[in-house]
Amino acid sequence: MLTLNGITKIYDKDYSKTKVLDNVSLKIEKGELTALMGVSGSGKTTLLNILGGMDRATEGTYDFMDIQVNMLTQSQLNKFRKENVSFVFQNFALMNHFSVFENVELPLLMKNVPRRKRKIKVCAILEQMGILEMKDKLPIHLSGGQKQRCAIARALVSESPLILADEPTGALDRKTSAAIMELFKEMNAAGRTVIIVTHDRNVAEACNRILYISDGKVCEEK
């Protein structure tokens, strides 16, 4: 589904260059549930951002299905993200002034889905996530687990083939983390490719593939 070939990422700030990813080559098949582990600053999030089209590699090629992502312009990258990628962030990345419903509705709004269809789809996803009764509440009134369910609902609603999660359980307790991981497994079972960046070994072990990243290199694969 996606292939990285010789991906290098160098941050060039204040006259100092930092190589975050060093010649990373990687292949992830459709329907895989992959965990990406590594210590802080190892480049996991950078790799995730490149996979999601939020960041560009300094060198190397990235093919997503039949799209050569590294050759896309900024507006094409936006379109690529809109159509192919969903993100789940550690800090949930919910818009605090918008209700749960409006947060989940956002990807559909951006795809110009008609209002009626949006409503049906969002309600169905919220019900699946078990937070339908919270739909009119603001995120500040939700617990951590509920917030992450909301973020996952937003990722699911757009039906993107690739779901990227950056420390999705990082701010949650063990019990809630397990419940959230069950949701990721369900997504994966539904045919989505899921890549999860995590520090948590329990989370990683719930995945069917684990990649380790260290000093900018994907160095171990199980």
């Binding site: 999601g52 159509e83 951006m110």
Partner: peptide, 9 residues
């Protein structure tokens, strides 16, 4: 930022 992450131009 969230909108941009979701693909907004």
């Amino acid at each position: 930022l969230i909108r941009k992450a979701l693909g907004a131009g």
